[in-house]
Amino acid sequence: MIIGYTTGVFDLFHIGHLNILKKSKSQCDYLVVGVTTDRLAKERKGKKPVIPFEERLEIVKNISHVDQVVAQVNMDKLKAWEEIKFHKMFVGSDWKGTDKWNNLENKFAKRGVEIVYFPYTENTSSTILRKVLQHTLKENH
């Protein structure tokens, strides 16, 4: 059985999120998804997600392509592998070729783990949706 793993904040769930979950599941038998906690999201991106962690966890848990959901409490992908023992890790193509992910590819290759990059969904992101919401709220008040 091939175990796959991917992570995300999954704030303001949109088609890009669904695409990566669907594509990830198509390449494994069992998909584990790490949902980033509010604390980690704030540390990493400097802003708290619009949708609270428990609600984002519940949304992702109920997507048909997802077999298991875990809290992502840190960015240590090797630690996640130690706990889950996944065979494939799925990430957006915007990370491909970066020093961080080249390093991770080398470390994971020694463990027999393949990193699979999926094309980033253009024109839709939680950041864009957040800006639209803020603009709409300003116009209506």
Rank of each mutant, 00 (worst) to 15 (best):
Y120K: 09
K25H: 01
F86C: 05
D11N: 10
K100V: 15
K48S: 12
T98C: 12
N103P: 00
N106G: 12
I59R: 02
K138G: 01
V69A: 08
I84L: 03
T6C: 14
G16K: 10
F86M: 08
P119R: 06
M89P: 05
H14Q: 02
Q134T: 08
T98Y: 13
L18K: 12
T136G: 09
F86H: 06
L12R: 00
K88W: 04
K96G: 08
E54I: 06
F90S: 04
S64W: 04
Y5T: 04
Y30V: 11
K107T: 10
K77V: 11
K48T: 15
E82N: 12
E105Q: 13
G16P: 09
E83W: 01
F53G: 09
Y30D: 10
V132C: 03
K131V: 09
R44G: 00
V32K: 04
I115V: 15
F90T: 02
Y30T: 10
Q134C: 03
K107C: 11
G8M: 11
R111W: 14
I20K: 14
I84H: 02
T6H: 06
W95C: 00
G46Q: 04
G34W: 05
I15P: 00
K23M: 13
K47P: 00
V91N: 02
T121V: 15
I3E: 00
I59H: 01
N74P: 06
H141R: 13
I51A: 03
H17T: 03
I84N: 03
K79H: 11
N123V: 10
H135L: 12
L21W: 08
H65F: 15
